[in-house]
Design a protein around this nucleic acid. Structure first.
Length: 295
DNA sequence: CCGGACTCCTGTGCGC
DNA sequence: TGCGCACAGGAGTCCG
């Protein structure tokens, strides 16, 4: 489930544990989680050019759901957690809570010691080695829209144009805004009072403004709570996120809306379960084509 | 341009 | 207890 808030919280918890430290050596136990920028059959596969071995970490950056571990002199380890990926720092002597599906281990041999592990049962996650920060920015620029945490209404209007695709599908498109996944798409649309099937290009200026505000507020609140743990998510120190009890719609189909008490409905959009409040999120179909005597 | 199906994986929970 | 199935936080590709 790692979406923007989980990756940002991970970044914040890992940064003090990694910053200014030199990676002593790297053990790759499953080479197929490693890629090189620019292609799936890249030569780095299986021989990941060290994955920062011998390098000093200078910075942890994030854009959308990507986490970039930047080393002195240029190389960048780009991490995408997919559905079940975890990056976990283990102090000296500490065992991983689970030792299965650990694919990569970075060891530190300075006086603080310890190691970082990449664990990913489903293996949808990817580690990508990129040669420089400039290449990283280019990689991101090609794939990602503006970071959803600082998204503005104008960004949405520009990305949507006159498209008739549903707003829910558009929000899941990382080229529209980077970092929103299934949980926070539903939560943001609920907060904005917008039905998930509304054509994205049909949003009014007011709705776009309210949606951008709702996205920022939804993501910020989730970061403050340390992210949402459904099953696999842990932060850099192995802690669960605390945001799950705050969710208004995700995972609550059939339960009463926290705002109005109506029973939350669900539908399937882009193969993703979509939960919404039929009252708080006005159905654009019924308002666009009102039934005689209705509404 | 778009929605939808399908793919990559493992784990879990449910109905039977 | 076991089995088969649907489904899960992501995202790329292909097809119509």
């Amino acid at each position: 489930m790692p979406e923007l808030p989980e990756v940002e919280h991970l970044r914040r918890t890992l940064e003090p544990l990694l910053l200014d430290r030199r990676v002593a050596r790297v053990q790759v136990r499953r080479a197929d989680v490693v890629r090189a920028a620019g292609g799936g059959t890249a030569p780095a596969r299986g021989r990941p050019a060290g994955l920062l071995a011998g390098r000093r970490i200078t910075e942890l950056r994030r854009r959308g759901k990507y986490l970039a571990i930047v080393a002195a002199g240029g190389p960048v380890l780009l991490v995408h957690l997919g559905m079940s990926g975890q990056l976990l720092f283990l102090p000296p002597g500490r065992q991983a809570p689970r030792r299965d599906h650990v694919h990569v281990i970075w060891r530190f041999d300075d006086e603080r010691g310890g190691r970082m592990i990449f664990r990913d049962p489903r293996r949808f996650g990817r580690l990508t080695l990129i040669d420089s920060v400039a290449s990283l920015e280019e990689f991101w620029r090609q794939r990602l829209g503006p970071d959803a945490l600082v998204l503005r209404a104008g960004d949405l209007a520009e990305a949507f144009g006159a498209t008739r695709r549903s707003i829910k599908c558009a929000l899941l498109d990382q080229a529209v805004a980077a970092g929103i996944g299934n949980i926070y798409a539903d939560e943001s649309l609920f907060r904005a009072g917008i039905h998930p099937m509304t054509p994205a290009g049909a949003l009014t200026r007011t709705e776009a403004r309210r949606l951008a505000e709702s996205i920022r507020a939804t993501l910020s609140a989730a970061i403050r709570a340390g992210g949402t743990t459904l099953r696999d998510y842990r932060d850099g120190a192995g802690r669960n996120g605390g945001h799950r009890p705050n969710l208004c719609v995700y995972g609550r189909a059939g339960l009463p809306c926290r705002r109005c008490g109506s029973i939350l409905g669900d539908l399937r959009l882009a193969q993703r379960t979509t939960t919404y409040c039929p009252r708080c999120q006005r159905n654009w179909l019924s308002t666009t084509h009102p039934h005689p005597g209705g509404g």
